[in-house]
Design a protein around this nucleic acid. Structure first.
Lengths: 202, 202, 202, 202
DNA sequence: TATGAATGAGTTTTCATTCAT
DNA sequence: CATGAATGAAAACTCATTCAT
């Protein structure tokens, strides 16, 4: 029992560290992020962090890989939404743009790792794996939409991968407030990428 | 005359340092890039770099901003190509994808700076300025294409900005060889973003 | 309680560093005094010194200013001695010469700072302040001695300031052993500066 | 002939360097004085200085020792003045105080070396030698004054040495403008050290 | 002769990491 | 479990000195 309590408390503090690291790493870079800075933000001692992670490298690895699990679900939730394929896609774009617009720290961390994939090959690998999974799921939905006549018949995989690149690019290039009209524009551009069949009024 | 020789030699070595820094900074990050590492790659002493740049910060700034001038021309050349607006756009996409596929170091540096724009505000500002210039030029071409009936009438600015995000995202997410078929896919997706009017066979 | 122990240990080590710095700075100068040298003399690592002082400048400032407090008391004790004004002055000279002859490191540090007052204005300011305080106290005693008929009526402030210059000069110019007869000479010269009324044998 | 011209030009530039070094060394200390700083003040290149002095140490040595020759003459000129011994002494004090009050750079360099005599033993030795010579000459004048009944019969060597300490201390401790009344005070105190026989009005 | 360019040795300073408490 | 103290390794940067021109 005590063990359970301890283990839980330990896990919670571990999560707290990772949560802070997710915001700090992309802002200061790997080398620019010091244990002192992290510890100060958390309100603990630098040495304490090393009770939870063997080294800075391990902390970084965990900071990239572990939240991926929790990030995956909302990011990929579109494939289980209720509704037609086009509705799924519209909801997905809404959600993705919203994530990007709120400058999700984790998304910025993803960009940081991808941008330096040679430096962080292991972490980048995990992210590429996730990107491919996203593409696969999205491809299915697109194919469904094409079969249902909601989307024009472009190459579904190409469109899916292109969209994934696009949404990352949107996150990278835009720094506006969440309320900026830019996000609506990006939404519309995103929708267009899937080539929805124009609605005809009979 | 001696002055000219000296000044020229000096400029050449300065350029060599920047050229090396362009490849090293995005690969190792700002803090991870040491004078020792740079100097070794160039084949000079670390102290020598300090003869050409006052500090690491200045070196970084120059590494981001100075090549931008030379980068600008080919990147924006599309607006002066011969041909119809659609031909300009197709050529531009070809060229951009080619740049991305050859993993232009400078493009990766751009991503690095944009991804940490809070950390490098001055450098990011210069890049945003460039992005806006690109968008403006591209917007003109799109409007021309729409007027000529080659492109469907989407919001030209939105499309232009969306494309710029997309091409950055393509560079960020893809790490394949230059010969990979992925680049052809990205080309096609890029073209679709501009909504070319389908050619009808009578 | 643990706090007390820690704080005390910390203060003790801090004092040890300052104590060493008091001897090393005047011997090697500011720039010539390296953390490595100091650390070696103390038997710790150079980095450790930086745990107690933020920078070399701060260490120097503390090394000059903090011991001044402890130095002040014995240096100015003469004004509270028992005895006639002349006896006070004689005792003071005895004591001052003794301090100088034992080459008090702190006195040499004082000389170092005064000699480069433009370079160390803050530290020099503190020392000038102390010198003025010394002069004021000494002036009082001289005036008492003149009123008591023990000293001839010279300008008391002039004599006091002159003596302070003299005793500093004695410390600066003489490097002899503490046992050298030179110190007796300096004592006699010092006494003469106060113009004691000759004792007449009736 | 050409040789003579060159040799003379060489000597002149050498003197210029030393002259600058005399002001810079006591202000910045030995380690704090860089070739770059000196060169900038002179208007030449740092490397040029090393054409005239083998090393920084040698430059310092020459900067201390060589001007001593030129400094000696005015400093010791009192012994050849016209007039009675007391007049000589009064003139000497005038002159010395004036030198000190004009913050003669060389005097400050002397203080710098004396204060760190352990660090600069060779240079300090030369200065001690000069101090002794000064004392000897001054002792003669004092003895003459005493024989002439102008000075009371104190130990002449003691008085001479005490005065030398005093004048150094005056230079060390005072930083006032040359026009400050402090210098008149110091003059009077200096005179008193020689114990002139009071002039009686019959 | 004079100097700009280059650098190796050394300096301050930072920081991940260890360890005793 | 948590942390303050300590430090070795390495960083940016400085500077006396050398050398080719």
């Amino acid at each position: 029992m005590a063990r359970t309590v301890n283990a839980q408390a330990r896990q919670e503090k571990r999560d707290l560290i990772i949560q802070t690291a997710v915001t700090v790493f992309p802002e200061h870079g790997f080398s620019g992020t010091t244990f002192a800075l992290l510890a100060k933000k958390i309100g603990i001692s630098p040495a304490t962090i090393l009770l939870y992670f063997e080294s800075k490298e391990e902390l970084f690895r965990c900071t990239v890989i572990e939240p991926l699990e929790r990030f995956r679900e909302p990011f990929l939730a579109f494939s289980t939404y209720e509704g037609t394929p086009l509705e799924k896609i519209l909801a997905m774009i809404d959600w993705h743009v919203q994530m990007v617009a709120s400058t999700s720290s984790y998304l910025r961390l993803v960009q940081y790792v991808l941008g330096q994939h040679q430096r962080f090959p292991q972490e980048a690998e995990a992210l590429y794996h996730f990107a491919e999974e996203s593409m696969n799921r999205l491809t299915s939905v697109i194919e469904d939409g094409q079969a249902a006549g909601q989307l024009q018949k472009l190459d579904a995989r190409e469109v899916a991968w292109g969209y994934i690149c696009f949404i990352q690019g949107v996150g990278l290039v835009n720094t506006d407030e969440a309320t900026s009209p830019i996000w609506d524009s990006m939404r519309r551009v995103g929708i267009h990428m899937f080539a929805p069949v124009p609605v005809t009024n009979p």
